[in-house]
Design a protein around this nucleic acid. Sequence first.
DNA 1: CCCAATCAGTTCGAAAACTGAACTCGGGCC
DNA 2: GGCCCGAGTTCAGTTTTCGAACTGATTGGG
Lengths: 137, 137
Amino acid sequence: MEPIEHTLAVIGDRWSILIVRASLRGIRRFDEYCADLGIPRPVLTERLKRFVDHGIMEKVLYQERPPRYEYRLTEAGIALSPALVALVKWSEEFVPNATPTTALVHSVCGTEFEQAFWCRTCGTTFGPTAVRGVNFE
Amino acid sequence: MEPIEHTLAVIGDRWSILIVRASLRGIRRFDEYCADLGIPRPVLTERLKRFVDHGIMEKVLYQERPPRYEYRLTEAGIALSPALVALVKWSEEFVPNATPTTALVHSVCGTEFEQAFWCRTCGTTFGPTAVRGVNFE
DNA sequence: CCCAATCAGTTCGAAAACTGAACTCGGGCC
DNA sequence: GGCCCGAGTTCAGTTTTCGAACTGATTGGG
């Protein structure tokens, strides 16, 4: 199985990306995910378990007696951000009636940023049509 | 429903992204997708229909009698590339035993490229941890 | 003319995943 | 004891997925 197939077997469903996004927004606890996303509890249980198993999230004890855990993204989980950003930006552009709000900003300066392909060799940025590759085109 | 939820309702499943990737690789026809991906035919039928309905693909008649159609990405479909690239790159980095091949190259110079967040205001590139936003963090 | 091959789908029954609502279980608080 | 919190589990019903076999229009070969 190719790497990306493996990845999609883990996060390729209607909820996974939304869970990652919720976590980046600061959501941590089981009931918070439920309330925030409206995700069915059994589905959330399974996803969190899957994420922990695949190193995307970690279970952190935040209270003993009764033992209670919260779920935080690991570095690998945070590294999914570029994919999430790409999807958010695609959505803003192509989903009909999408509100073109400034959804994502650079925390340093507070203004909207771009996402691009960047070629170190050429020193240029470029778009999707100039991409080619073994696993791609 | 927020834009990204809508987007994930369309392409948030185990196969959709792989179909887009196959198409970027030059796959066009029903049986080609089947053979290339090993996707069940009924699922492929449903996904292609969905993609056409949502403007991600278009059905192109390539032969009359019997009428035969092939499926090509629209501009909106090609615009999903950044998300795909992000997932491919994430996979290369975080999927265990992933072969670190040069999967994606800049077609102009043939060397590997990067994908980054870029702030026009600051004139800098930055990583996932510096992202903040209404829909995000 | 008839038979095989092509190719985009459809049909079908079984298995798996998803869903909402209710329930469990440990433990603190009054 | 009775009530609340909060992370799950259980359950029954629906939807989705799956693989394999089938359909239907048409062409090319013998």
